[in-house]
Design a protein around this nucleic acid. Structure first.
Length: 642
RNA sequence: GCCGGUGUAGCUCAGACUGGCAGAGCGAAUCCUUCGUAAGGAUUAGGCCGAGGGUUCAAAUCCCUCCACCGGCUCCA
């Protein structure tokens, strides 16, 4: 009999008979490991422990101590849900039910479910867990599988696609419930310690909008009840960090029903932050050789017919009829910028030409897509466009990526990088696309940036590099971006005169350091949990008089700090309450001023991290704050080292 | 656009299941208190109960339609 070589995580190898299972390998290593084995990871794929090894592989044994164990457990939890569902609603049809990063879902159809039903199903699931049914793998001939699912077109579809080459196919059975499934699963339903159904939603079969609508039930499971409790607590904590909640609490912005959906209104506190953000990138742009321009909010649609956007994007534009002509709110700034470039003739010596604008754009997103500041109908892009010679592409992309990395560093943000390539619907030739993609990828490689390739996810006019952030609820949002565009210069017939006195075509680069102010504002609010760095904080210092008699001295202090955003708390409250409210408002520094300070001519400083010190010289505090703001430090540091 | 949930005072929420006077706390205003480290006290004002229609003697409450928001799906130049 021939043998296979199994490579274990520590690099050691075992020689096993061909056809040995994952479990056999575990027993070969040791009987304890053998009996603990839940599943295996074979060449990166999580598989059942009975999977035979027929070629040389890398193998990780999964036991209840492994990271993968909880995935296996949740997969079993999905089956428990399905069994409970079928007990309560025999008419329900099952489709697919995988595990996810933090739980599982099961897509079903043929049944209408609401929240009360979830409770009923959850109670039934608890009984199934309590009963501790063995979960057993079963090999079933294809023919029999089709028979089992003669009324279930979805499972038939799976048999004809994913499982097309398998005969027999594997089922997992617990009690009288069975499900077509590759596994792996835990030994018995009782291994689930904490089980909860969380959400109900609609989904589409195979994720395609044109297919049947299914009902998706989300749930989660943990080995212990405590694990579940902890998870639910974490979810609650995350909701506390939601920018919509903080935005309300801190009077940063609001979105009003009367003024319209997806149209954020920035209140004074929010606008102060926006101004700081705008000044910051404005300076970066000027330092990098950009010129600021400005364009209006509305253009004739001729412009987007010229740019090609009209064909691709008209459904998402706000259009208006003026003097029998069609106008539209601008959904992007680039055609305006290209038009400005086209106002004069350029020499090759003038390039690169770099324009930037905080440009407000309007995009009529689908209803149901709008969400706080992360997805809006009106938003402002810190938009920049470069017009470069082909030989300047790499250096300019490199410089742009550099500024983006600097910006992200200033705010101390976590991010991921995606390299998006040519989509199905695109303009421009094969050669041009290949060239563009190669140049972007070269920069990523040179900068040693970790990135993932998102094939087919590029803009219709060119490939792009996107930087994405995660929000409080774990959703990903695109932010900074660099996009090459070989198309728009053609559309606008943009030219420059070369050394050879001939017309040449410049290349356009679209880029944003924040992406949109709205989305970046969301990211910052949640990242800092509303505790904005002092340079961004709407109110940097709040002076708290101990009694009203101290107010005149407080006003003197305020005047001394007039370079900063300083307020006096003059409401007739106790000191304790003034401190409470200043903490709630997340003000970086409080100055507590009573007779003691007034007589000594000094101040008491308390920061929002509850550090405090008395008898401080105002000038010392002012100098420190000045440094902290100038250096854009992300933390309050005055009392940190004292 | 699809499924589920929600919409009551500036904010946070009771009341709805079982139809019968519109409620609380915070905030605001006025007054008292002038206070030393995480919410001092009293009084007052504040409502088209998301909008429209229906059922009923009577609708915040029941039914229908629409709008918006929340979670998810799909979409996102």
């Amino acid at each position: 009999m021939s043998t296979v070589t199994v490579t274990l995580p520590d690099g050691s190898t075992l020689s096993m008979d061909e056809g040995s299972t994952v479990e056999d390998v575990a027993y070969e290593i040791g009987p304890g490991l053998g009996s603990d084995t839940v599943a295996g990871v074979v060449d990166g794929d999580l598989v059942d422990k009975h999977t035979p090894l027929i070629e040389d592989v890398e193998l990780v044994i999964v036991t209840p101590q492994s990271d993968e164990y909880v995935d296996v457990l949740r997969h079993s939890a999905a089956h428990v849900f399905a069994q409970a569902l079928q007990r309560e609603f025999p008419e329900a049809t099952l489709t697919i039910g995988p595990w996810t990063d933090d739980g599982f879902y099961y897509d079903v159809t043929g049944v209408d479910l609401d929240e009360d039903d979830l409770e009923t199903i959850e109670a039934e699931a608890e009984r199934i867990i309590e009963a501790d049914y063995d979960i057993e793998r079963e090999e079933v001939p294809r023919e029999d599988a089709f028979e089992r699912y003669e009324d279930n077109p979805f499972k038939q579809d799976i048999l004809e696609t994913e499982a097309a080459d398998e005969d027999p196919v594997s089922f997992y059975q617990q009690d009288d419930f069975y499900d077509l499934c590759q596994g792996p699963h835990v030994e018995s339903t009782g291994e689930i310690g904490g089980f909860a159904l969380l959400e109900i939603s609609a989904s589409f079969w195979r994720g395609d909008e044109d297919n049947e609508t299914l009902t998706r039930v989300y749930g989660t499971a943990f080995p212990t009840e405590d694990g579940l409790e902890e998870y639910l607590e974490m979810r609650k904590q995350a909701q506390e960090r939601d920018h919509r909640k903080i935005g309300q609490e801190m009077d940063l912005f609001s979105i009003d029903d009367t003024t319209g959906p997806g149209l954020p209104l920035y209140e004074p506190n929010g606008k102060k932050i926006l101004n700081e953000l705008s000044d910051y990138v404005g300076q970066l742009n000027r330092d990098a050789g950009y010129d600021e321009i400005e364009t209006p909010h509305v253009f004739r649609t001729e412009l987007w017919k010229k740019s090609g956007h009209y064909d691709n994007y008209v459904d998402d534009m706000f259009l208006l009829e003026v003097n029998d002509e069609e106008y539209g709110l601008k959904p992007m700034n680039c055609p305006g910028h290209a038009t400005i470039f086209d106002q004069k003739s350029w020499s090759y010596r003038d390039l690169p030409v770099r324009y930037f604008e905080d440009g407000k754009v309007y995009r009529k997103e689908q209803r149901g897509e709008l969400s706080g500041l992360s997805r809006t109908w009106a938003f402002t892009i810190d938009d920049g466009h470069l017009f470069v010679r082909p030989d300047q592409i790499e250096q300019e992309v490199l410089a742009t990526v550099d500024i983006i990395l600097d910006t992200l560093d200033t705010f101390n943000l976590d991010y991921t990088v995606q390299f998006a390539t040519r989509p199905e619907k695109s303009v421009g030739g094969d050669e041009i696309w290949e060239k563009a993609e190669n140049q972007l990828e070269t920069v990523l490689e040179e900068q040693d940036i970790d990135y993932v390739v998102e094939a087919g996810d590029g803009a219709f006019y060119g490939p792009k590099i996107d930087f994405a952030f995660e929000d409080a609820l774990g959703r990903n949002w695109d932010g900074p971006t660099v996009q090459l565009d070989f198309n728009m210069p053609e559309r606008f017939d943009l030219t420059y005169t070369g050394e050879d006195n001939e017309d040449h075509r410049p290349v356009m680069i679209h880029r944003a350091l924040y992406g949109s102010y709205e989305r970046f504002f969301m990211v910052l609010t949640e990242h800092y949990n509303g505790k904005f760095p002092p340079w961004l904080a709407p109110e940097q210092v709040r002076i708290l008089p101990v009694s009203d008699d101290n107010i005149p001295y407080c006003e003197e202090l305020q005047a001394e700090l007039d370079d900063f955003r300083v307020e006096i708390e003059d409401r007739s409250w106790t000191v304790g309450k003034k401190i409470q409210v200043a903490h709630d408002d997340r003000v970086p520094y409080m100055l507590i001023i009573g007779d003691n300070e007034e007589e000594a001519g000094d101040i008491s400083v308390r920061d929002r991290n509850e550090r405090e010190e008395k008898g401080i010289d105002l000038a010392e505090f002012r100098d420190h704050l000045e440094t902290e703001v100038e250096q854009q430090r992300t933390a309050v540091t005055f009392l940190a080292g004292r």
